[in-house]
Design a protein around this nucleic acid. Sequence first.
RNA 1: GCCCAGAUGGCGGAAUUGGUAGACGCGUCAGACUCAAAAUCUGGUGUCCGCAAGGAUGUGCAGGUUCGAUUCCUGUUCUGGGCACCA
Length: 910
Amino acid sequence: MEYNFREIEKKWQEEWKEKKVYQVSNESDKPKFYVLDMFPYPSGAGLHVGHPLGYIASDIFARYKRLKGFNVLHPMGYDAFGLPAEQYAIEHGIHPAISTDTNIKNFRNQLDKIGFCYDWSREVNTSKPEYYKWTQWLFLKLYNSYFCNTAQKAKPISELIAKYEAKGSSQFTADEWNRFSTGEKEEWLMKRRLAFSAYGEVNWCEALGTVLANDEVVNGVSERGGHPVEKRKMRQWYLRITAYADRLLKGLDTVDFSESMKEMQSNWIGKSSGAEIDFEIKGLSDKIRVYTTRPDTIFGVDFMVVAPESDLINKLKTPTQEIKVDEYLAYVKSRSERERMAEKKISGVFTGAYAINPFDGREIPIWTSEYVLAGYGTGAIMAVPCGDERDFKFAQHFDIPITNIIGTHFNGTEANATKDAVLENSSFLNGVTMRAAMEEVIKRVEEAGIGKRKINYKMRDAGFSRQRYWGEPFPIIWENETPIALKESELPLLLPHLEEVKPGKGGEGPLSNLPDWVNTPQGKRETSTMPGYAGSSWYFLRYMDPQNEQEFCNRKAADYWGQVDLYIGGTEHAVGHLLYSRMWTKVLYDLDLIGFDEPFKRLLNQGMIQGSSRFVYRIHGTNQFVSFGLKDNHQIDAIRVDVNFVDGYELDTEAFKKWRNGEFADAEFILEDGKYICGAEVEKMSKSKFNTVNPDDLVYKYGADTFRMYEMFLGPVEMSKPWDTKGIEGVHRFLKKLWRLFFDEIKGKIWTAEKATDAELKVLHKTIKKIEEDTERFSFNTGVSTFMICVNELSDLKCYKKEVLESLLIMLASYAPHIAEELWHLLGNTDTILNASFPKFEEKYIKESSKAYPVAINGKTRTELLLPLDITQKEVEEKVLQDAIVQKWLEGKAPKKIIYVKNKMINVVL
RNA sequence: GCCCAGAUGGCGGAAUUGGUAGACGCGUCAGACUCAAAAUCUGGUGUCCGCAAGGAUGUGCAGGUUCGAUUCCUGUUCUGGGCACCA
């Protein structure tokens, strides 16, 4: 009887499905555990080997927790709204609903083959009305809530209205409020709503007639077609995430994310404290307001920089500088933000104007430069070259004289951002330490009425509308310029069918092409749709109660499941998605709809699996392809080839000739050693780079169990690594070797019910301990290796005993579920192995009484000494000195010291 | 430019708290079985010197702390990822 993985896997997948073994109930006496994967966007390219990495890890952990006696929620679904489906529709005329459906079926098919333990009865699909009804409902919750600064939490906007009606606000009296028109009232409310509408800049491409995402713009032109792109102000929806900045920051202390992830989030939020200070401008009535974190350096200000986008520039530029300034502004306009970011070259131009230092009246030249952004702080800075690296380089580059206010702390060749120096050249601050000076300056600035203390955040409110079709429609009708929200009873507002997806007029979304839908007796419907992250900001709650038609999630279900105990996903969208879902959770908590204010208790980031691309080299202008080692003798063009017809680095030239309908049929090859050797480069795995490896092929060839274990065996889950299929054989061999502990090719069944020996139990319990430790710390690669060691040792011991093998199978059931289930049943069990209990580790089986100690001389290991564990230092010294090898190294002298660390090692110091 | 992560044999990686560097697997070499092949099994395999015993050297690079450093500290180089130049 041999290991027929194809038959076994098919059989158990069907059986598990039929018996609904993965269905989980919201009621149980067991403790709960919630294991979640970041759900995928179902792209047309299907799964490649990079996708399942995190899914396999979470699957192993979910199964492990189940064996450990937990009621485990482990669901999966689809983040199904999004740009690519819409783009595909524009290019191929296939409706997004259809292509999305096809893609989901394909994904599901691929996922099923790998044997995941998802409870598919809880599947969510963000593009289905049953789901997005509640996304719209939650949007209305945000819209109808405001952030109360006193209570530091969200409250219903009705409470704010009641307050305005009764007491007014600092801006208006109650009487004034009550006399306001509906539109005027709405304008005031809009300033407080958590989901609000305002004007914001978008990338507008006239030629394509549409708004473009940041990554669709390259070098200031559209990626498709290379058309010019300009910034244009349009009405947008936003989420007031900045109101939650502080709580999002504090919440990081309560969750178990990696330090680097927390750092990324807190850098994104970017809280800083400092002051806003107004500088007068020589000869103008306008003032420049700067934000600075270092008010103590006010006497070191040698120039000011205003963002090129600032409206003030036109007033600042003097006639002599006008041409230079305009040229520079045109240059900046042509640059994408990404370009400005990566720019090492220092650029900028003097406006000709001077600001006045409010404390000593010094005239300070005002410059403009692309390194100052309009969107942060006040869009203008006071530059202190001796204390800020960038300011220093700028001053050096443009020969701006530098004032030293920190004495010897500044060496003239490098800025020093210290806060500990004692100030010099600083008028009333001379002799004051910088830390103390900060307070002093803020005090004086406030007294003089030229500024104030200010806490600043990098984070901006999140843009929440897209001029697109394939997303949730806003439950909003515009009555002239005033938005009116639909009633909850009117939800869902269905996304109307569109025969042809194309942009609307004037930058509006495709929905504006449907007048029957847009025009209602009340007014015009909002034609933009919600962004991709709308549905994904709360999907983890829907899994808890996926079929509920009355509520987004029943409170009892939410209280039972609570936080996601383990959330697994990549870092790529992590900052955005994690912050948005954390914010939504906090809002829902504030409104008392759920009982926790952080969605994810623990986060594990899986690394990216990269592809290893292969290149062939065509001699420029010919049909000849030259092998890698000979390419330097020619002028060549590198062309990517499909990795599937390259064996290692050797090209299958016949397959290459047949590739792409014979595009290379006439190719001639210049070989080395009779072979065509390809070049290689590690890069992102992508269909367009021909370096994708499809899991289906591997599952077919080796089985799902082998595939699962191999993905884990590659290395730590958190680490990025290039995919290499070589080595999968080793894992497959391991499973075959495991099988041979139960069945022999000739004798058939060889397992017995005999009692296990001490040596066998030692192997087993060593394994239990290690598997438990490795799984708990997500070290699945060493887990796989532990199984290999266990099977190797049991084979050496010729241990075919059910007592030992049964426990091994239970542990293996989370890593290689199919083979474990099959052998479990062949051993005579009738219930599924999923309902077994994880074996209990017992110390007594692995207790040792002695240890082979490494003995080092001066830190270099020279020999080994078998010693009892309870030996004393004195006894150790005696034994060590008697040892022949130690004596040889001692050369008759006495050692200075003998270090003995129990259970570790011995070191003899000469 | 800024932020984060990483660098260990021919390759993927292991070493969990500062204590035998290279577990496990791939590849490769030798052997067994076989008419042969596949499969399987046994043994070797960081580098250098040496017939061997043995020795030297070795975790990107340069230093430091320590009886002892892949692990801690300082500096540095390279690679990967992220970014909203964050004052």
